[in-house]
Design a protein around this nucleic acid. Structure first.
Length: 206
DNA sequence: ATCGAGATCACA
DNA sequence: GTGATCTCGATA
């Protein structure tokens, strides 16, 4: 297996993201075909990146070499995973956003409460659930076979790739660094982010 | 010490 | 539209 995306420099993390589409993710007896990703730059100003303000305990894996997993918890309950890209010292990464379960369907169904099979892995936290990946996967390798997640290159690359703004990112809406396989039914419809639209208590009266 | 927002998901 | 309740950065 040749992991070409792992050799790309950080300033080409968008290429790395594109080239990961269609790859198979294997873990916990389930295989997911990757259909949607997002690129995050570690260079200069990518205010959407977790590493934008420097290294923390949470994001330190992002500053390491390519081919390792950066797993983080979001909204207190869910996990999402990135594959670190670029050279060491630069925190570029590709978020695994959605996929299609292509093997281990019964196991996958048992790990998720969901109506349609197409929704088994149609989101970043859903991928983690069907693959049974936990925070223990943080900092493990996907290329040397020592970690819980392994990757397999597709026989044929995806036919057509679409690009658009990243989901849930308030800043940098002009950067089209969300990539997906055109027309794939596991890719969620683009939801425009609406900042500050939710609030628990009404604003103080005037 | 406390607060607000966030690369989310399932359900009503 | 709502709730679950972690992590970080800003504020005090």
């Amino acid at each position: 297996m040749s992991y070409d995306w792992a050799k790309l420099p950080a300033d080409r993390v968008d290429e790395a993201a594109r080239s990961l589409l269609g790859w198979r993710l294997n873990a916990g007896g389930v295989t997911v075909r990757l259909t949607e990703v997002e690129a995050y730059s570690g260079l200069g100003k990518d205010p959407a990146s977790h590493a934008h303000r420097g290294m923390t305990n949470r994001n330190e894996v992002m500053f390491g070499p390519a081919g390792f997993l950066y797993v983080y918890q979001i909204y207190g309950m869910y996990l999402c995973a990135n594959i670190v890209c670029g050279e060491p010292g630069v925190a570029a990464a590709v978020l695994l956003r959605a996929g299609e379960v292509v093997d281990g369907l019964d196991v996958a169904r048992g790990r998720r409460t969901v109506r349609k099979d197409l929704d088994l892995a149609s989101g970043p936290a859903k991928i983690m659930q069907v693959l049974a990946l936990t925070k223990a996967a943080n900092g493990t390798s996907v290329i040397d076979g020592t970690g819980p997640l392994t990757l397999t290159r597709p026989l044929e690359p995806p036919q057509e790739i679409s690009a658009g703004p990243r989901v849930g990112v308030t800043s940098a809406h002009d950067v089209p660094w969300r990539f997906w396989i055109t027309g794939d039914p596991t890719v969620s419809a683009y939801r425009r982010h609406v900042p500050g639209k939710t609030r628990k208590t009404p604003a103080p009266g005037r």
